[in-house]
Design a protein around this nucleic acid. Structure first.
Lengths: 240, 240
DNA sequence: GGAGAAATTAACCCGTTGGATAAATACTGG
DNA sequence: CCAGTATTTATCCAACGGGTTAATTTCTCC
């Protein structure tokens, strides 16, 4: 029934040509390449190969190297904004909401290391491309407003002692997560230990949540110091 | 008197040759170049020109591009470590010491934006060069130990409620400062305002100090939220 | 004041790389 | 089944950029 034209729903047979798929593969390959090598270090030919395509295809489907880079950057912002909108903090009580926020940010960065690298690359370029992107400029993070209402609720309920500027808090939470992960390579060398192994990551997340919540609530809920001794309340002196 | 050989104290007349000076100029130019364009984006010829030298000189005095880069990186670490050691926190009471620490970190990053860029570049390279540098690996930051003793003193004196892992706190303080400054270009575009102008910088520093001290002491001393209303205690609702 | 070493300059080499051209192949609608 | 269009492939190329070679100049020290 209704066979008419094989629109493009299920390609049943493997396509010989697949413009949309090709574009996606190109952008994915480009993301990896730019994230791994930066703008200047990225190689157009490598992107082509990794996209299973010909170099000419990049120019046909997206544009030159910079167009490619901007498309990747815009897609990256689009993705995180989209996931951010999915976070529902309304029905959580304020401290839980903040914890949820930190947890999301941390795990998003952990799951998307390319995003961190792309941001660094763009900042090296002094946001030259972002400035020209009306698309990204119109994509506001819902987090600032979310934080604003959570903080207000927290102060009203007595959970939080003080009102914080939501933008500052947003940047602080992002910064706590971002720096650790983005600089894990150099920090791991400096400290002589792997900051990305499971225990270290868990310890870091616990620390960040404890730090921010302690600041907001005035109560030191979670283990703020070494997460080494599970269940143990932080003691005055740490053995090490 | 004592004219013997014009050693090299005061070059009275301008020198025709100046190996030490040349090396310094090369490293300075290289630092600027790598900081501005990253490793792959840096141009050896530009470094030469900006050093007031010939390209061949780079190879003569330092080595190839990667040698140059590593020399710059090592010098950068050496510089910050040196300044860190100059910070005396012993005689300050714990909260002041922490504030001093944040203040130093913030201002060092502000005064040395190239350092931030270099770290990002090195992390893009997964710390490939740092790993090979025994020099840098031996340069431990005195801050971790400083923080450890300050925290212990703070807990003993009752100023601080909980013991924090000094490494975590060190990373948190660095992260709060680093992220804001390193990503100021993209963040400024996203938020549609200049995060580097004086008021914004002051507000940020106040926020960071308040955040960390509130977490440690349990008391919300400084203005934690908007620094907009000087003197005013943070109110439940912010007008904006 | 001259030989030898140190520092500096000028010119060239050659693989790489972003981008362009043109031809071929697959798809579409009629 | 055919013309026209969309997609893909196969080459090519000029500029760039790191690195090298060799000649030149300046300093040192006897």
């Amino acid at each position: 029934m209704a066979k008419s034209k094989p629109v493009k729903a299920k390609p049943a047979l493997k396509w010989q040509r697949d413009p949309e798929g090709m574009r996606i593969r190109i952008l994915e390959a480009a993301k990896q390449e730019f994230a791994a090598h930066g703008l200047a270090g990225a190689r157009v030919d490598r992107i082509a190969v990794n996209a299973g395509a010909n170099k000419r295809m990049l120019y046909y489907h997206v544009g030159n190297k910079e167009d490619l880079y901007l498309a990747v950057l815009e897609a990256a912002y689009d993705k995180i904004r989209s996931e951010e909108r999915g976070l529902d903090l309304e029905h959580l009580d304020p401290p839980e909401a903040i914890e949820r926020l930190i947890d999301f940010t941390w795990n998003y960065f952990l799951r998307n290391p390319e995003f961190l690298a792309l941001l660094n690359t763009e900042n090296l370029a002094k946001a030259r491309h972002l400035k020209r992107s009306t698309k990204v400029k119109s994509m506001h993070s819902p987090f600032v407003e979310m934080i604003r209402t959570v903080v207000i609720r927290g102060v009203e309920s007595g959970d939080f002692r003080v009102a914080v500027d939501p933008v500052q808090l947003y940047i602080s939470i992002a910064g706590l997560c971002f720096f650790y992960l983005s600089n894990s390579a150099t920090l791991s060398v400096i400290f002589g230990r792997d900051l990305l192994k499971k225990e270290a990551r868990d310890e870091r997340l616990a620390h960040m949540v404890a730090l921010v919540l302690a600041a907001l609530t005035g109560k030191s809920t979670a283990d703020f110091g070494k997460a080494k001794v599970p269940g143990a309340r932080a003691a005055a002196h740490q053995p090490v």
